[in-house]
Amino acid sequence: MTKATAKSPWVVHVNCNSCNGCDIEFLACLTPMYDAERFGVVHIGSPKHADIMVVTGSVNHRNARVLRNLYEQMPGPKVVVAMGICPATGGIFADCYNVLGGVDKVIPVDVYVPGCPPRPEAMLDGILEGAAILAQKQQNTPTVKPVMKLKIVKPAPAPAPAEAPAAAGATGEQAVAK
């Protein structure tokens, strides 16, 4: 079952006021060029069927509730991938009055994929990393409460806006921009 879980990550894509750059790039992952489906990735519309939640955009006060609702509706084991720099730290919007600055302020994040937007290879890599974590969680779920031992990387506590990409790049170990 663990193996199957790793091979079949279904992805739901949530846009929390992103500039659409990451969204377009993410959808491009499904094209013949990159073909995410060869890893079993299905881009699914409903959080109730999804394993991995891909969040783009810096979260603001208004859609934090939406994000939390969607996260709650995903059946566990589940993984959140923050796609791009905005969901990691707030990116260039970090200083805006309405921006919370990071998905991890609302829900626990497992993988950060920095970049503005990240390269498709990085995105694929991030999702596969997420799938590995998913399998890990799957092994633990039935009896033990999910302990996220691996790959939990908190970003720098309060990054300065200018250094944000750099800070995330330094800490986010999954960012393997090829």
Binding site: A4, T5, D35, G76, P77
Partner: peptide, 27 residues
């Protein structure tokens, strides 16, 4: 997938999917 010029998932993908779904939380 091949018709669209992609590589496509492995042949056994549907089985991986259902086995995975069995292990999820029953919402």
């Amino acid at each position: 997938a091949r018709m669209q010029g992609r590589m496509g998932p492995p042949l056994m993908q549907p089985f991986y999917d259902i086995i995975k779904l069995m292990g999820k939380e029953p919402f």
